[in-house]
Amino acid sequence: MSGTLVIGATSAIAEATARRLAERGDPLYLVARDGERLAAIAADLAMRGSPRVGSERLDANDLAAHEGMLDRAERFLGGLDTVLIAYGTLSDQRACEDSVALTLRELHTNALSVVALLTQIANRLAGRGAGTIAVISSVAGDRGRRANYVYGSAKALVSTFLSGLRQRLSRHGVAVVTLKPGFVDTPMTAALEKGWMWATPERVAAGIVRAIDRRAGVAYLPAFWRPIMLVIRLIPERIFRTLEL
């Protein structure tokens, strides 16, 4: 029975994903910043069928704390097998434009801390010669747009980093899965108006579990985002810069 380490376990998408894993009986080790909500989610997942649920508080921006957390997760799960990195903040683009500090903080949360974690996780799994690393990136990382290019560029860094990591680890038997959700109706996006393109966290979670099980490379969630983003990437800059996207 394989266990999963979920980093950012209180995010709506991570919680929905963890429920699916719990219901099929996977052991879980949950990591998040908000200890109160983390404990509530851990209790819920144990009732939903996970035979063993461990948890600990972590601020992912505290890079020095990563190693100890990974040690404890590895001990609890009896070895790292599947890791899901699911945290992130939807940066306030307007505020970032006026603040270097805020911009760098957003890049640190959404990109650099992820890279720090991935570097350590990759070496641990490569050493074992097995496992799956799945990371929630975003369609926003496929092309910078005026509405959210700070968030988008952080996700672009993550996506590109994962692409290289996938090549490196494939010869070690480790799968690296880049998850690219589109618009998801979660607390992170509570301030945005919703339309037909919005998916529920449950639907995205189903796609995540499928991508992890299949050891997919890049998964757009839902899948209709793949052709949409292909078109968006193909638009020439000359035209793109004038678009109201």
């Binding site: 509530a40 209790a43 939903r48």
Partner: peptide, 9 residues
């Protein structure tokens, strides 16, 4: 609807 966690049983 998002208050959908079991607490104890």
């Amino acid at each position: 609807r998002s208050l959908d966690r079991f607490i104890r049983f």
